[in-house]
Design a protein around this nucleic acid. Structure first.
Lengths: 194, 194
DNA sequence: TTAGAAAATTGATGTATGATAATAAAGTCT
DNA sequence: AGACTTTATTATCATACATCAATTTTCTAA
């Protein structure tokens, strides 16, 4: 692909890169396809990649000791996803990542990302800012979890992520909110009646 | 203070800086003292600073619409604290930051931090790594909130942060765990009997 | 188009945690 | 030490959400 029409400009949107910088960057990303149901990552795997979602829908979830799934994050178009704990600290995966809708992704390895940071420092700034935003979102999520009722969290979720709601099952949303699918069903009924 | 014995080497521990880099860095931090009970930040304030705790204990908390406090983070010796959502995105504070034990802090402003990043890129890497670790900790906290019982979260807290437990009241811990102080009291009783 | 599978809902009942109020214990100040 | 304040505990009752089991609705694929 020609540098002046590179996918990189989508992945690193907002960053203005020279033609030569794009040529350095582009080969460090790999385009990959996955079908619905595929598992990109399993607990205890080495976390090699961070993924950019071009199309489709993914989710990361934690499998607890009782075999229950707890969704940490969804990713739709233009979202990044990984098991960041493992990706950042070179420890093994705590999470699983599952494809919810057939997906076209770009992935970058840890090593290539560090390489990119040292070659093009403004890419480090770019990802730092992404991380700052994700951090802020996590902070809000923690506060919501400890201060709001399930109903409030659900309303907040569908307002904040209307596009995600379309792509995922209610039981995924329930597991994201930290409640059972039965409870979510009752909450939805309550809301529809009021 | 002489560069070869600078407080900066404590704040930026793990980073090896030249004498001249330390001389650039040091004036951008300000040493400040606060007494127990002081509020460093209130909801809706502009978030100007990030704080490094040299001594004492702080906490950040969210005040909900019912007037209840929900602790997001504690900070003791060698921890950084701020309202990162506001600090990173130039939005107003969601959190309050309160001094729990008389504190000696070093603070840096947003502007000076950005200045530092552009002058000394490895400081950007240093803070990026700090942020990555904090992000991973938040991720674990979210998973704990949606997958564990209050008892499990309490046991996990006192194991992970034994030093913090010494400095804070039980009602602070309860508000961090997302439960009432009465529930925590019952949990503690259960634990002591088993 | 219909059969089977997957997802969502509903009902009955259980349990962890919340709310309120009272009391006890620990800390602080003169 | 004694008085007062702050913090922690206990008891009773209320409630949000979980669990288990059954049923209905929606989706999918031959």
């Amino acid at each position: 692909m020609k540098a002046n029409n590179s996918i990189i400009q989508l992945l690193l949107k907002g960053l203005s890169l020279s033609k030569s910088e794009i040529e350095i960057t582009e080969p460090l990303f790999q385009k990959v396809f996955y079908e619905k149901g595929a598992l990109l990552l399993r607990t205890n795997d080495i976390v090699n990649y961070q993924y950019y979602t071009l199309e489709g829908c993914l989710r990361s979830f934690y499998l607890d000791k009782y075999g229950k799934e707890h969704t940490l994050q969804f990713a739709i178009r233009d979202w990044w996803i990984s098991d960041y704990t493992g990706f950042f600290s070179d420890s093994k995966a705590i999470l699983n990542i599952e494809v919810i809708e057939d997906a076209i992704l770009y992935r970058i390895s840890k090593e290539n990302k560090e390489r990119l940071y040292s070659k093009i420092p403004k890419i480090e700034s770019f990802f730092r800012k992404k991380l700052e935003n994700a951090f802020a979102a996590f902070q809000k999520r923690i506060l919501a979890n400890i201060s709001q009722t399930a109903t409030e969290r659900y309303l907040n979720f569908i307002n904040t992520y209307p596009d995600i709601e379309k792509s995922v099952k209610n039981y995924h949303i329930a597991s994201y909110l930290g409640i059972t699918t039965e409870s979510l069903s009752r909450i939805r009924k309550e809301i529809s009646m009021s």
